[in-house]
Deep mutational scan, measured.
Amino acid sequence: MSIQHFRVALIPFFAAFCLPVFAHPETLVKVKDAEDQLGARVGYIELDLNSGKILESFRPEERFPMMSTFKVLLCGAVLSRVDAGQEQLGRRIHYSQNDLVEYSPVTEKHLTDGMTVRELCSAAITMSDNTAANLLLTTIGGPKELTAFLHNMGDHVTRLDRWEPELNEAIPNDERDTTMPAAMATTLRKLLTGELLTLASRQQLIDWMEADKVAGPLLRSALPAGWFIADKSGAGERGSRGIIAALGPDGKPSRIVVIYTTGSQATMDERNRQIAEIGASLIKHW
Rank of each mutant, 00 (worst) to 15 (best):
N173W: 13
L167W: 01
E175L: 07
N98P: 10
E145P: 12
T187F: 15
K232D: 00
Q37N: 05
M115D: 02
L167M: 07
M127G: 14
S68C: 02
D269I: 02
D177Q: 01
G141L: 14
I275L: 12
Y260A: 08
S122F: 13
M127I: 07
T261V: 10
A215L: 06
E87C: 10
E277L: 11
V31Y: 01
R189W: 03
A170S: 02
D83P: 05
R189A: 06
D269W: 03
R255P: 00
T147P: 05
V106M: 15
A222K: 14
R176P: 09
H151W: 10
T116D: 12
P249V: 06
D174C: 15
T198S: 07
L247A: 11
M184C: 02
D177C: 09
M209V: 02
A133H: 01
R63A: 12
W163T: 07
K32D: 13
T138E: 03
A183R: 13
A276M: 07
S128V: 00
L197N: 04
E61I: 03
T69K: 00
T186H: 09
R91I: 07
R273I: 05
G141A: 10
E35R: 06
P253G: 06
S264Y: 08
L150Q: 03
T178R: 06
L38I: 04
R118T: 09
P105V: 06
V214R: 11
L199Q: 12
A235Q: 14
R189L: 06
A40E: 11
L282T: 04
K232L: 00
L74Y: 00
I244S: 08
N152P: 09
S281M: 02
A182I: 04
K71H: 00
V31G: 05
L196Y: 13
D174P: 12
W227H: 08
E175Y: 10
I54M: 09
S281I: 05
V82R: 09
L191R: 01
Y103G: 04
R241P: 00
L89C: 08
L199I: 15
S240W: 01
V31D: 01
K109Y: 09
I243S: 14
S201V: 13
G154P: 06
G39H: 06
A215Q: 06
E164D: 01
D212V: 10
D207M: 10
L150H: 08
K32H: 15
T186I: 05
H285Q: 12
W208Y: 09
A40H: 09
S68M: 00
I93Y: 15
V257I: 13
V157D: 08
E195P: 10
L146S: 07
G234M: 14
P217I: 15
Q88R: 13
L120I: 07
S128K: 00
R241L: 13
D36A: 04
L247V: 05
I171K: 15
T178D: 02
L135M: 12
L100S: 14
T179S: 02
L120N: 02
G279E: 02
L192F: 12
A211Q: 14
E270P: 04
L219Y: 11
I243K: 00
N173A: 14
E102R: 05
D155R: 01
M184W: 01
V157T: 11
L79R: 01
W286L: 06
R176C: 15
T262W: 08
D155H: 01
W286G: 04
A34W: 04
K32Q: 15
R91K: 13
K213P: 04
T267S: 08
E270C: 04
P25V: 11
R81S: 06
G194R: 15
L38G: 13
T112E: 15
R59L: 11
L47W: 11
E61R: 05
A124I: 11
G76K: 00
S254R: 10
H151R: 07
P25E: 07
T198M: 05
I93P: 14
T261H: 10
V42P: 00
A230L: 07
L282G: 08
V157E: 14
